Amino acid sequence: MAAPHATVSEGNSLSLNLADLFEVIVCGDGQLTYRELDADSNRLAQHLAGAGVCG
């Protein structure tokens, strides 16, 4: 049986869509999806860079 294939663009789109479905962090009643964790980590990185911590 041949393995399914997709273009890079299709693969990225699939990954982003799946990122909305699955929680990566669950604590009590709170949870974050992969997409939310990525967005939060990007905001933190920008904040730290703006404060001169990184770079």
Rank of each mutant, 00 (worst) to 15 (best):
H47S: 09
N42C: 11
E36D: 15
L21V: 04
C54E: 00
S13M: 08
L21H: 09
R43Y: 14
L48N: 06
S41I: 10
T7K: 06
A19Q: 02
A49M: 07
D20M: 04
E10Y: 07
V8S: 11
D20W: 10
E10L: 04
T33V: 03
L14P: 00
G55H: 01
Q46H: 04
E10C: 07
L48D: 13
G50Y: 01
A45S: 03
G28W: 09
G55W: 00
G11P: 00
V24S: 05
L21P: 00
S15W: 08
C54T: 02
V8I: 02
A6T: 03
H47C: 03
T33N: 01
L32S: 08
M1Q: 06
S13I: 08
S41A: 09
S13W: 15
L37D: 07
L16E: 03
V53L: 02
D40I: 15
E23L: 12
N12S: 11
V24Y: 05
A45K: 03
A39W: 09
A39R: 12
V26N: 03
G28Q: 06
S15G: 03
G52N: 05
R43S: 13
D38W: 01
N17K: 05
D40Y: 13
G50K: 01
V26A: 14
N42M: 09
N17I: 05
A6R: 11
E36G: 12
T7F: 13
N17P: 02
D20Q: 10
A49E: 10
V26F: 06
L21D: 10
A51F: 01
P4I: 12
S13G: 08
D20F: 06
A39K: 12
M1D: 07
A39I: 11
C27E: 15
G55P: 00
S41V: 13
Q31P: 01
V24K: 02
G30Q: 10
